Deep mutational scan, measured.
Amino acid sequence: IRCIGVSNRDFVEGMSGGTWVDVVLEHGGCVTVMAQDKPTVDIELVTTTVSNMAEVRSYCYEASISDMASDSRCPTQGEAYLDKQSDTQYVCKRTLVDRGWGNGCGLFGKGSLVTCAKFTCSKKMTGKSIQPENLEYRIMLSVHGSQHSGMIVNDTGYETDENRAKVEVTPNSPRAEATLGGFGSLGLDCEPRTGLDFSDLYYLTMNNKHWLVHKEWFHDIPLPWHAGADTGTPHWNNKEALVEFKDAHAKRQTVVVLGSQEGAVHTALAGALEAEMDGAKGKLFSGHLKCRLKMDKLRLKGVSYSLCTAAFTFTKVPAETLHGTVTVEVQYAGTDGPCKIPVQMAVDMQTLTPVGRLITANPVITESTENSKMMLELDPPFGDSYIVIGVGDKKITHHWHRSGSTIGKAFEATVRGAKRMAVLGDTAWDFGSVGGVFNSLGKGIHQIFGAAFKSLFGGMSWFSQILIGTLLVWLGLNTKNGSISLTCLALGGVMIFLSTAVSA
């Protein structure tokens, strides 16, 4: 259960009878995928790494000078000259100064003066180019299975845990398959586009800190620079940016070097996208990844198990997540596992009318040892309800109150669905055939309105939902006002479609 501690969480529900669903994975976010007769899966884009970055340009932001020398000439005696002028490691300046009897010249006039100092770069920052084909995306998957609280967001041991898996995709191999043991396998067909235009970005490294910066900004930095990788004795261009020549006297000129420019660069980098280094690879934390999940090989585990009949206890007080759902960790005293956990939410304890829904599909106890633990997640209705676990006299209950409203949740879900469709863009549509167009249209309606429909009408039977949709269509056909007619027709059509397409 990876997503319960992530604030940016998206719930995606598969269409009834569908074998695939489109998701948008982004750094700092987590996606929970639910479908009829399929286990619930949490998917998170953990890291995006980039390798084989080529150094484009380096800037010196802290330097020192040494070996200063000057040469001067009297008027009419030609130009002052130093051998160091031809050495690229030196920074030199030529000027004219007033000369006369007082400073060793027989004539009054302008004399030539040249001053040089050896330039040494102490600290530099480097910009590297990123090729999209060198990106690698690491995705962690977790099935809502027989897990306890100690396994949440624990990325170790996934090789031997059938509840978890790690997959890596690249532009050259965008397809992967996550093996989930008894739950089958989940196929991923990803489109490795981060949403960032790397043709316009460089990877900047300064003092063990890293950013993504725009090329134009990078090339306009007014500091000494050299092109390409460091060859040991780089040729620094624009050395004068960190060196200041003071007022010249008759035979000498003082040279000083400016202080470190790291603070000024940090100020200019305010708002830039931060990154990290992992050995020789860069780690990015921006952008998104679009994936199509193929769920035809994914299956529920323990459908044929019998119900657990022994007593359950709450190991922890049920807690609310950031998303309005409830996490419950229970301990089973029996030894008759594997068995299914009898769990439901009810409005009252007399009729036990089921409300809400299970995020953890078909929760089971897989071990036959005593005191096995299991964590599950529920989506309670707004208002008061009861969490009921167990059967008969051994069942345990917990009162729950959820604040908020169904309308607010439906609106929030619609906005999130619209954002998801905007990110998917043209990849969500198939114009290759008439059937493809209608299929894409259905998927689009489901992406945007599916979660809201589930919130508003999830407790009704599909037949009642179709009746309401048919009534809206009838009202649309018999209303003389054009805008009201079109609105009723659209709402009725969407409702009829979703009542037959969205899983219960």
Score class of each variant (00 low, 15 high):
G127V: 00
S385A: 13
C30T: 04
R164C: 15
M15I: 13
K239M: 11
A428W: 07
M495S: 10
T47W: 01
E262K: 13
H210Q: 15
S185P: 00
A165E: 13
C339T: 05
D296C: 10
D278M: 02
T267V: 02
L498I: 01
L456T: 06
D247W: 08
D220A: 06
T397L: 14
H144P: 02
L196Y: 08
I387G: 02
T351Y: 14
N481Q: 06
I448D: 12
F449A: 05
V114E: 13
M375S: 14
S58M: 04
F411L: 10
G302C: 00
L358V: 14
L307I: 13
H399D: 15
V494D: 12
E133W: 09
G106P: 02
E168F: 05
R99Q: 08
C74L: 02
D189L: 01
G195H: 03
N172T: 02
V97W: 08
V33M: 15
K409Y: 07
G195C: 10
N208R: 11
V330T: 05
S368W: 15
E13Y: 09
S464F: 07
K209T: 09
V256S: 03
R94N: 06
R357Q: 06
S372T: 06
T170V: 03
Q147N: 00
T309P: 09
L307G: 11
E412W: 12
L456A: 03
A422W: 13
A63W: 12
F411Q: 09
H323E: 07
N362K: 11
P222H: 10
S403L: 13
A410M: 12
A264C: 08
S70H: 06
K297M: 11
M345P: 06
A311W: 15
S464H: 13
D87Y: 03
A229K: 10
I130A: 08
V364I: 15
H401Y: 13
M460G: 03
Y386G: 00
A413C: 03
Y386S: 08
S464L: 12
N103Y: 07
M277A: 02
L358R: 10
L486W: 13
S433E: 02
T267D: 11
M421V: 14
Y90M: 13
E133M: 11
I484K: 12
A165Q: 11
T427E: 02
G459I: 02
G404Y: 08
E162V: 00
E240F: 02
D83A: 15
V143S: 02
T487C: 14
A35V: 06
C105E: 06
L378G: 05
S405N: 08
R9Y: 07
G145Y: 06
D67E: 15
F108A: 03
G106M: 06
G482A: 15
L96C: 04
I484L: 15
S385E: 11
S51A: 11
R299D: 05
S304C: 00
K251Q: 14
M460A: 05
M277K: 13
D426F: 12
K128D: 01
C3F: 08
G182Q: 15
L186S: 11
W474M: 14
H266V: 13
L258D: 10
R292N: 02
A165I: 07
T40S: 10
M295C: 12
G181L: 08
A311L: 14
D22F: 07
E377K: 11
E412H: 12
M140D: 08
T351H: 00
C488D: 11
L273I: 12
L196N: 02
G436S: 15
I387R: 01
I407K: 10
E276S: 02
A80P: 14
V21R: 00
M34T: 12
S405R: 04
G324N: 11
A428V: 14
K118V: 00
Q350W: 00
K395H: 07
Q89S: 08
V437H: 07
Y59S: 02
L141Q: 11
T327C: 05
N154D: 15
C121A: 05
F285Q: 06
T406D: 06
T325F: 10
D348Q: 02
D430H: 12
E55F: 00
R2C: 08
I365N: 11
S304K: 00
T19M: 09
Y137S: 02
V265H: 12
F218G: 01
A333K: 02
G469P: 06
E191N: 09
D430A: 06
T267H: 12
V257G: 03
L113A: 00
F431G: 01
G102V: 03
G383K: 11
E244T: 13
E370M: 13
L424T: 05
F119T: 05
L293G: 00
A280M: 02
G390K: 07
R193V: 01
N8W: 10
M375L: 15
S58F: 05
H226L: 06
K215V: 02
K373W: 00
V364P: 00
K480G: 13
I468F: 08
N134C: 09
E244K: 10
G109Y: 07
A346Q: 00
L223G: 05
K395C: 08
G109C: 07
G469W: 06
A310T: 02
M349N: 00
V56G: 01
G18P: 00
G232I: 02
N172I: 06
V255N: 02
Q85E: 07
W20P: 01
P354M: 13
P132Y: 14
L456F: 13
N439W: 02
V265T: 14
T397Q: 04
H235R: 14
V41S: 00
C116F: 09
G450P: 08
G279R: 09
Y81M: 10
G102M: 09
S64A: 13
L456S: 04
P338A: 02
F382S: 08
V343T: 02
M374S: 14
P222S: 12
V257T: 11
L300E: 04
V114P: 02
G425I: 10
G111K: 06
T88H: 08
T95S: 13
A413E: 07
A264G: 06
D83Q: 13
K409W: 02
W400V: 14
V328A: 08
E136N: 04
H446K: 09
Q77M: 13
G145L: 03
T231V: 12
D67P: 00
A63F: 10
T254A: 11
A248Q: 07
S260D: 10
F285W: 15
A452R: 03
G127C: 05
S66R: 13
